[in-house]
Amino acid sequence: MAKDSSKNIPIGHTPKSSFHPVTIVLDMCQGAGRSLLDLADSIGRLGLFTGKVLAACVTPPLYLKHILRQFMNIGFYSLAVVGMTALFSGMVLALQSYTGFSRFNAEGAVASVVVLSITRELAPVLAGLMVAGRIGASIAAEIGTMRVTEQIDALTTLSVNPIKYLVVPRVMAGVIMMPILVLIADIIGVMGGYLVGVHVLGFSASGYITQTWDFVEPIDVISGLVKAGVFGFIVTLLGCYNGYNSGRGAQGVGAATTNAVVSASILILIFNYFLTQAFFS
């Protein structure tokens, strides 16, 4: 039988693990306050880091060889992942919009829905999320490992600014290569819709292309490319920031990698809303 320990507590003494409603509310307030302070601290640190990176982007020296290498890493090597994502997204979109629109006898709108959805939303957002998974994680892990093994400190002792050497090339490559990736994704995604439209749903090839071309406007493509540039900045900046401020050991690097991907993905979705509102509302 369990012993009643409350009998041993002196009168007037409040045990630490009290379930008194006031204590619970105070604990909750304390937790919320701490989270709020931590959030403010993180935003402040990220703001300072961003300022340093932007300043470093416009002051010499720029490590051109490193920037070109990052063009390859972020742009060329992401092409397959982004291309596959765009192709199958375009194909699924054509199928889904056909089955949906056929209820309203609006099957003819499939081509226009595919091209507008791909250029305005799907290509930049999906490419951003895929690159956040592929590149954001890899940047955070690489720079985090360099932090843990003191390679970043070594750069400083060798008179090299780590922000310029490690961060600027990645951020520049992200901002420049993401729009190019998304432009390619636009073409592949529309092609995916075309393949399903013509070979599965029975549209005529010329009719599908004409409808696509008639509906798409420059702003549809341009808005997607601007979004891509912003998403490229977010992914690479957060990858670098989390890696640069990585905690010690394997656990620290693991946490930095997770944070880089999660925070970049969430910010991509948030910024996507505001950019869409800015362009189209």
Binding site: Q151, D153, A154
Partner: peptide
């Protein structure tokens, strides 16, 4: 500086 773990790139 010679770092404890080498810190080679």
């Amino acid at each position: 500086m010679l770092f404890q773990g080498g810190a080679l790139f």
